[in-house]
Amino acid sequence: MSFLELEDVQTYYGQSHVLQGVDLEVDEGEVVALLGRNGVGKTTTIRSILQLTPPRSGDVRFRGESLVGKDTHEVAEAGIGWIPEGRRMFARLSVEENLRAAVPNATDVDEALGTAYDTFPILHERQGQRAGTLSGGQQQMLAIARGLIGDNDLLLIDEPSEGLAPQIVSDVGRALLSASQEVSILLVEQKLSLALDLADRFYVMDHGTIIDSGETDDVTAGDERLRRHLSA
């Protein structure tokens, strides 16, 4: 029994058939990168796991239990966190309120906040500030902190380095690396080097299906095997 398992997932947006049978697995403690060009269905795969865009057929299982048909908040309660593309801060809420909103009902809020602030001191400094006024890098830190504070066992991380300066990207990379000590991660990332650094295994998507997979140790960023699939 895999930790997270997708089996022949087919997802549509209205009429357009986006995921045409996706199979993938993430094991406990593992970091798995999902690679592919723009528009091949990576974000849709994540949305299908979260039931934000429920699959029309196929199955998504987490710890052996099917997620299909559940509400998104139930998926979240099962222990899956989402660090979306574009961060999606609650821009008019303060940094602290953004974190508070992510704390599960059963957890002690102050304790959870304390842990988050220890990990990301910059957020502590800015706790009263509106999240919308943070810099891109700070927002990404907040998004990661929001994912971690939710007591999750699996994080779905979409394009964490997008739009960030190189210096900040390495900060984010470090934060993700330390996060990967605690949780499993399914990572969508355009920066191949970053993705391969962080991940244990990888999948390559094209036209809504998985076309290749393997161990990250077996490939490098310049490999013909990957370049063929990833360059336009």
Partner: peptide
Amino acid sequence: RYGLFVRAGVEDEEMAAALGINV
């Protein structure tokens, strides 16, 4: 706390749900 959920939901319903809020 419920008011916080409401304000989060006003801004981004999907994100709120993905954080475990029963929107």
